[in-house]
Amino acid sequence: MVRFLLFFFLLFSTGLASAAPDGRALFNQHCAACHGTEGRGGVGVPLSLPAFINSVSDEYLKRTIRHGRPGRIMPAFTRLSDAQVNAIVTYARSWTMVPAVEFNPAPIAGDRENGKVLFGQHCAQCHGDDGKGGKGTGVTFSRERDLPIIAPALNNSGFLASASDTMIKNTVMHGREGTPMASMLQVGLKEQEINDLVSYIRSFQERDSVDSDDDENETVIMVESPYDFDETIESLKTEIANNNFKLIRTDYLEHGFVEEGKENKKQVVLHFCNFNFLYQALAIDPRVGLFLPCRITVIEQDDKVLLMTINPMRLSHLFNNYDLDEACKKMTELYKAILEDATL
């Protein structure tokens, strides 16, 4: 029995040793899609800039991974093991080979009201009113932006749970070279004023979760048509145009899956678009293209003609992006208007 247990112990421990997490591979798998190869930036901010990585603690990195940035795209990685998170942090340190700094966790006292005034004067133009962050996130190569790197949200629960007061103070004092974030000492702020700013930033309340009423939203928007199949499609085409959308293409749901001519002719998809809208949505989050262009499917089944589409509001939470919620809401309303008008 002892030998038997020993065998298992060895098997288990060697298994663990050889499976020591590979930080680089984990980063490429979980982070690089947003933060770029070797942390050079993308939908997420650059992480490998010395002015960033050398001035943040391991604790800040670990907590950021765990909390993510609710409503600002970055998901919370709750299912990675501690060993995996540590491996990612160790890998991130290898970019500059500079040992981690540590910050005193003690809170910093300051005049919150004065901090608020200063914030409006020196920070809000980039970090937004109430520190809600710049429009868009990170560095994107594909869209026009006001800044080379979009200012992160400071009122974000993920940020506030990760950064200590002293770390925030240090960032504001010294800025981050190579990014639009300037040293506020150089701008002329005094240390006490920076303390006031820190105290104001710390006072930001968490924003309400956006997807709280998520389950009340149906997954699909569906209406029954009073017209026959072909009439419904004609009516839909008219209403798409009336709502300022351009019809791109009409085809069968099974197009490309079955031999041409053999498709189910009672399942037709209309693809349409409004370029202004498409552009705006992609500028907020390039990933939304996944649900674009707009599509409405018309089917005839059991003597009923049905029009159906996805519900963008329901999908909005997938992107974890507050800015997108507004656009998705608008899209849901548009879909509903078109479906309603087409079946009047």
């Binding site: 770029g36 190869t37 993308g42 939908v43 594909s142 749901l253």
Partner: peptide, 19 residues
């Protein structure tokens, strides 16, 4: 039938810089 609007599944592919 309620799956119809989600079918077929899609993958979006886009360029970001050289990636």
């Amino acid at each position: 039938p309620q799956m119809i609007p989600y079918m077929p599944p899609k993958v979006s592919v886009f360029a970001e810089g050289g990636d």
